Simulated assay, not measured.
Amino acid sequence: MPQADVAQIVQTIATETNTPEETVARIYADTFDSYREDARIQDYLPLFVARKVRATLREKQKSRH
């Protein structure tokens, strides 16, 4: 996946969740690496990773309140 696409995904998630881009980028990279290890087909990885990152950040926000 092109780096520009990843940057756009990270920026969008950061804006949606009011989370620093650096934090989102780290979670995204860690999640992507984890998912890539087991994926036989990688076409939809960015979609699944973005979904997981959003869910992770929502859970963290819930636990703060």
Results as ranks from 00 to 15, higher is better:
residue 33 D to R: 14
residue 1 M to P: 07
residue 32 F to M: 06
residue 27 I to L: 04
residue 10 V to P: 03
residue 9 I to S: 04
residue 56 T to M: 09
residue 50 A to V: 06
residue 48 F to R: 08
residue 30 D to A: 07
residue 2 P to W: 04
residue 33 D to L: 14
residue 36 R to P: 04
residue 2 P to C: 08
residue 21 E to Q: 15
residue 56 T to P: 01
residue 44 Y to Q: 05
residue 20 P to M: 06
residue 25 A to Q: 07
residue 5 D to V: 04
residue 34 S to F: 05
residue 16 E to P: 02
residue 13 I to N: 02
residue 29 A to S: 13
residue 12 T to R: 15
residue 44 Y to I: 08
residue 18 N to A: 12
residue 52 K to V: 13
residue 30 D to E: 09
residue 37 E to S: 12
residue 49 V to D: 01
residue 9 I to Q: 02
residue 57 L to N: 00
residue 19 T to H: 01
residue 47 L to F: 11
residue 23 T to R: 08
residue 47 L to K: 12
residue 10 V to K: 06
residue 43 D to M: 13
residue 16 E to W: 09
residue 51 R to V: 12
residue 62 K to P: 00
residue 39 A to H: 05
residue 6 V to G: 00
residue 50 A to F: 00
residue 40 R to S: 12
residue 3 Q to R: 08
residue 36 R to M: 09
residue 40 R to C: 10
residue 12 T to K: 15
residue 63 S to E: 12
residue 51 R to L: 14
residue 4 A to T: 10
residue 64 R to T: 11
residue 58 R to C: 07
residue 65 H to T: 11
residue 47 L to C: 08
residue 40 R to I: 09
residue 34 S to V: 04
residue 45 L to I: 12
residue 41 I to R: 13
residue 20 P to G: 08
residue 34 S to N: 13
residue 51 R to D: 10
residue 43 D to V: 13
residue 62 K to L: 14
residue 17 T to A: 13
residue 48 F to M: 13
residue 29 A to C: 08
residue 7 A to P: 01
residue 30 D to L: 07
residue 1 M to I: 10
residue 50 A to R: 01
residue 65 H to A: 08
residue 32 F to C: 02
